[in-house]
Design a protein around this nucleic acid. Sequence first.
DNA 1: CCAGATTTGGCAAAAAAATGCAAAAAAACA
DNA 2: TGTTTTTTTGCATTTTTTTGCCAAATCTGG
Lengths: 248, 248
Amino acid sequence: MLKRERQEFILREVNLHNRVLTSDLSEAISVSEDTIRRDLSELADSGKIIKAHGGALSRSFHTSFQANSVYSHDKKKCIAQKAVTLLRDGQFILSGGGTTITELAKALPATLQATFFTGSLPAAIEYIQHPSVDVIFIGDRISKNSRITVGGDAIEKINQINADICFLGINALDMEKGLTDNDWDVVQIKKAMIRSSKKVVALTIAEKLNTQQKIKVAGLEELDMIITELDSDDKLLDPFHRAGIQIL
Amino acid sequence: MLKRERQEFILREVNLHNRVLTSDLSEAISVSEDTIRRDLSELADSGKIIKAHGGALSRSFHTSFQANSVYSHDKKKCIAQKAVTLLRDGQFILSGGGTTITELAKALPATLQATFFTGSLPAAIEYIQHPSVDVIFIGDRISKNSRITVGGDAIEKINQINADICFLGINALDMEKGLTDNDWDVVQIKKAMIRSSKKVVALTIAEKLNTQQKIKVAGLEELDMIITELDSDDKLLDPFHRAGIQIL
DNA sequence: CCAGATTTGGCAAAAAAATGCAAAAAAACA
DNA sequence: TGTTTTTTTGCATTTTTTTGCCAAATCTGG
């Protein structure tokens, strides 16, 4: 069996069963466990699976686990620091939800004078504490999971806005599938925000790069800029560079 | 079962049931309690759960628990305790802003199923943490002083609502001048809420009784009930009793 | 304060992974 | 085609990780 063929077999097994054991694979393909381990390492390096002691797990199965650890807090602060450099006095800014955006709200320069539109409760709480920014809350039903407003009224309001820049905290970004999410209502809001903004900036920690979720929000071509905690010349970001997206 | 897989299982259990017992998990997964304990420690170290004697708690459950257990002797807490007795399943409730209303939001019975309309950021944050109430946020510009939404859009939305009951935190209540306030925009919102509700309940600490502010919100005849931290037969409340207002 | 339950930390056995190395296979090249 | 180079694979050894057990320490609810 060819190496390539073997790795594709492993990948199928992982995605089918959500987990595989090194020992099972070794027996099934009749190669040594060392070889399987090397294959798993390569697949894990290219982000296709998650390696674990004794075998590997599928990415989709693993996403709930890796999100929102306390260690990502520093990364999100770093992202917020970069993002605020894009802000200018007098701008009209659309702001999505999520912990990264809330960090951005905490990191606003003290003298900024701008108008923020948001449907995120935690972000609004932070924005409103700033002495000189105006906050317009986009009302509607509040989603329990994401703590942002969702629904037709909210989308209608967003459609009336013509913002200079839009900051979106995102859950999954992939070269092939673009921007994806797992909550239908939230996706509708994000799409509306992208439509209503001249410039779209996606904020995300690097571990969400090259991951996919179930519902498409936008293609890569709709994004103007990506901000992560990595240096802009990190090799993980190369594909996005080549796609013509600015990296900060 | 792989270690990683096991930890994901535990994490899902914790988030699902808000708490888990070491012994239950040990039996469910068929590993020793030591192993479970180590898993819980690791998950706790990375901030995903809160470890406790005998098991672990979910993060969200733990924080709301903390928030609920403080200030048990505060006057506003006492008022909130009285106010929640008015709530019934299936009601549509208009909720104003202010710290007293936020206490009310923290004191909701765990099993209540109702729909809250509010323009207050702090109150909404509390309402949304409740497992079974719906929250509709009334959007518009957010007033920095009061942290509630104010403006024409908000009033328009409130006019569309026909609520069963309305809770207003108030700044001044007087036999002669009735309900008064010092913020023009906030007054407009309160007037709209009173118009849109079958029953109007005013929440206030006793020291605000028999005080006046500059702008009139409503006459006494528009109020159905007043809730303070005092006993309902306190002599301070006699005049309001005589005006035909219920006291709790 | 007590008795039982729970946790902690050390220890050791087993399992798995990493490492270095050499043979075999495949690819590249003259 | 024959030779060299690179890649792949398996093996032996060392290192790391995982796990259960145990005893001492700690906590819990009367």
